[in-house]
């Protein structure tokens, strides 16, 4: 009798555990995106509206652009929302992604301590600013995590024509918010996306030191994982989500997001 009870209990536990994981009922989408988008809170404004409209659930996984693309290549997400045009184009060219659409943009900014030890404020070019930081060996904190921001930073150093290394150049390997906090504590320069900077501004002692510049343009695109590679990809809902983002309704949410809290929008819909 006792043995039977135990077997029953064990069976019950296993059934419970495995039903926990089943996704029944509503249609699920997994969206892998960058920490800069997730940390800003924009998706918390967009997704509930879409979920209601489309009767679907969107699960968001926040990671760097590099990891998001790797997850998509393994078929572990349906959509990616990332910001590294070169890698995105290669991803589509290699047949992993379809239906790439530009959604929104903002810009990268160079931030640094208020006293600006390398005196880069007011410099017109990004390249000259970075080159000055390097030559004066002023402390610069890099993400170092293969994220979209990190990739852009490396492209910029390439344009400067030097490989950043030495004691003045340090890598955190962490997300944008955490990296800004570290840069603030160390009184260092840092390249960040505008949205994360605005949402962290109250907690860090760093000021914006760069002006708007084509080299700092930061576009975000959404790409659907190719359903021909992985049959389980939720193609129909994925397309619906993309259409929602580029619809007037989606654009309006993007345009309005953050205006109230930060005095300016964090992202601009494409075409505006």
């Amino acid at each position: 009798m006792r043995m039977k009870k135990k077997i029953f209990l064990l069976g019950f536990i296993f059934v419970m555990v495995f039903t926990l994981g089943c996704r029944k009922g509503v249609s699920h989408l997994i969206l892998a995106t960058t920490t800069s988008v997730e940390n800003s809170g924009l998706l918390d404004a967009l997704i509930p509206v879409f979920e209601k409209e489309a009767e679907a659930k969107v699960d968001v996984i926040a990671c760097g652009t590099g990891k998001a693309i790797q997850l998509a290549k393994n078929g572990d997400c349906d959509l990616i929302l990332v910001h590294d045009p070169e890698t995105e184009k290669k991803f589509v060219r290699d047949g992993y992604g379809v239906n790439r659409k530009s959604i929104m943009y903002n810009d990268f900014v160079i931030v640094g301590p208020e006293d600006d030890p390398a005196k880069i404020k007011g410099m017109s070019g990004v390249i000259s600013a970075l080159s000055t930081i390097a030559h004066k060996k002023a402390l610069f904190i890099s993400r170092g995590d293969d994220s979209g921001t990190h990739k852009r930073e490396r492209q910029l150093w390439k344009k400067v024509g030097l490989i950043p290394e030495g004691e003045w150049y340090q890598e955190t390997g962490q997300g944008m918010g955490a990296t800004l906090v570290i840069a603030s504590q160390k009184k260092a320069y840092c390249l960040t996306d505008h949205a994360t900077y605005l949402s962290c501004k109250g907690r860090i002692a760093l000021i914006m030191l760069s002006n708007r510049n084509q080299l700092l343009y930061n576009p975000y695109s959404i790409i659907l994982v190719n359903p021909k590679k992985y049959a389980h990809i939720n193609y129909r809902k994925g397309i619906e989500f993309i259409n929602f983002l580029i619809s007037n309704k989606g654009k309006k949410i993007i345009r309005e997001f953050g205006k109230e809290e930060f005095g300016e929008p964090l992202f601009h819909p494409v075409g505006e």
């Binding site: 555990v17 926990l20 994981g21 699960d59 393994n74 078929g75 572990d76």
Partner: peptide
Amino acid sequence: LSHRGPLGMLGLLYTPSAMI
């Protein structure tokens, strides 16, 4: 559990079961 892995068809990745 990855869709490329041997148990990918179970669809358990990113569920509480995977964490358990």
